[in-house]
C-alpha cells in the first residue's frame, strides 16, 4: 500500500529492491525496539554467564584493573554438582508427565469436538478457552483451596495437577485443529474394508493426528520447563524445578552469572525441543498440521 510508484504491484521484485523510505519508516520502530529490548538482553545473558558475580548482586566488569575476569566458572560449577543435573532431570520428568497427562485428557475431548455438529464446534472450543480468561495465579490459587483439605498440597502431585490444569488448553486446541481436518471418508473406507474401531484408531486417526500431537506437546512441554510459580505455590521445598533455580540466583542469592548460565542451558534445551517438535509436526503423507 505504500510503494513509491503507484503503478507497480506490491511484490514486484524490481520495486522492493529499491527499499523506499516508507518501508523503513514502518519497519524500523518495531525492529529497533525489539533489537534493544529482546535481542540485546538475550546476548547480554551470554556474556553475563562468563562474568563474575558482584559482592551485592550485579556483575564484576569483564575488564577489571586491566585484567580479564571472564571464565567458565559457572559452567564448571554447574557440571561439578550433581544437584543441578538432578533438578534439570526432574524438570524434564515433570514436563514429560504433564505433557502425557494433558495428551490423555485432551485427545478424547478434541476428537469429540471435531466430530460434533459444525454448529456446536465453536461453542465447545470457546468453553475450553474461557478458563484462560482468568489470571494464571488465580488458576493456581484455586488448587490451593481444592487440594488443601486432602493433604495433597505441597507434594509433587499438586505440582503436576497445577501444571496440567494451566496448560491443558494448549494441548486441546492444536489437537482439535488437526482432528477437525481429517477426511471422514478415510474411516468409512476402512470400515467397509472390515477394520474394527481399534484398528481404525491406531492405523488411521492416530498417525494422521501426529502433527497435532507434536505441536500440542511443544506448547505444553516448553512453558512447563520454565515454570517457577507453580512449584513455589503448590509444591514442597524438594519439588523445585529449573525455573525456581533461576529465580533463586537472580533474586535471592544474587549470583547473576550462575543464573545466566542456567537460563542459557534452559534456552538451549528449549530450542532443541522446539526444533525437534517443528520437524516432527511437519505434515506427513498428506496429513494436516
Amino acid at each position: 500500500m505504500t510503494e513509491s510508484q503507484p503503478s507497480n504491484r506490491p511484490r514486484d521484485p524490481a520495486q522492493t529492491r529499491r527499499a523506499p523510505l516508507t518501508r523503513w519508516l514502518v519497519s524500523l520502530p518495531p525492529t529497533l525496539f525489539l533489537l534493544t529490548f529482546f535481542l540485546a538482553p538475550a546476548l547480554l545473558m551470554v556474556g553475563a554467564s562468563l562474568q563474575q558475580p558482584g559482592d551485592f548482586g550485579g556483575l564484576v566488569p569483564a575488564l577489571e584493573n586491566g585484567r580479564l575476569t571472564l571464565s567458565l566458572d559457572t559452567y564448571r560449577f554447574f557440571f561439578s554438582d550433581w544437584i543441578y543435573a538432578e533438578i534439570f532431570l526432574r524438570s524434564f520428568l515433570v514436563a514429560a508427565a504433564t505433557t502425557l497427562l494433558c495428551l490423555l485428557l485432551a485427545y478424547p475431548l478434541a476428537w469429540l469436538i471435531a466430530r460434533s455438529h459444525r454448529r456446536h464446534r465453536d461453542l465447545l472450543v470457546l468453553l475450553v478457552l474461557l478458563p484462560f480468561a482468568s489470571n494464571f495465579l488465580i488458576r493456581i490459587y484455586a488448587w490451593i483451596i481444592l487440594l488443601g483439605p486432602f493433604d495433597l498440597l505441597y507434594t509433587p502431585w499438586a505440582v503436576i495437577t497445577g501444571m496440567v490444569y494451566v496448560h491443558l488448553p494448549f494441548m486441546i486446541l492444536p489437537l482439535y485443529t488437526n482432528l477437525e481436518q481429517h477426511d471422514p471418508a478415510l474411516l468409512e473406507a476402512a470400515q467397509d474394508l472390515g477394520a474394527g474401531a481399534a484398528t481404525r484408531f491406531w492405523r488411521i486417526t492416530l498417525p494422521l493426528s501426529l502433527p497435532g500431537i507434536w505441536s500440542g506437546s511443544a506448547l505444553v512441554f516448553i512453558p512447563v520447563l520454565g515454570m517457577f510459580a507453580i512449584p513455589e505455590l503448590l509444591g514442597g521445598t524438594r519439588d523445585i524445578l529449573i525455573g525456581n533455580l533461576i529465580k533463586e540466583q537472580f533474586l535471592d542469592n544474587r549470583d547473576w552469572p550462575l543464573g545466566s548460565t542456567l537460563s542459557l542451558l534452559l534456552t538451549v534445551g528449549v530450542l532443541l525441543l522446539a526444533g525437534l517438535a517443528a520437524r516432527a509436526a511437519r505434515p506427513w503423507r498428506g496429513g494436516t498440521a
Binding site: 529490548f37 529482546f38 540485546a40 538482553p41 538475550a42 547480554l44 545473558m45 553475563a48 548482586g57 550485579g58 556483575l59 516448553i222 512453558p223 520447563l225 520454565g226 515454570m227 517457577f228 525455573g243 533461576i246 529465580k247 537472580f250 547473576w256 543464573g259 545466566s260 537460563s263 534452559l266 534456552t267 528449549v270 522446539a274
Partner: peptide, 17 residues
C-alpha cells in the same frame, strides 16, 4: 514463544547492568 522467565531475567540483567 520463549518461556516467560527467560524474557524476565534477561530484561532484569539489561535494565540493571
Amino acid at each position: 514463544a520463549m518461556p516467560e522467565i527467560l524474557l524476565g531475567v534477561s530484561l532484569l540483567l539489561f535494565f540493571r547492568q
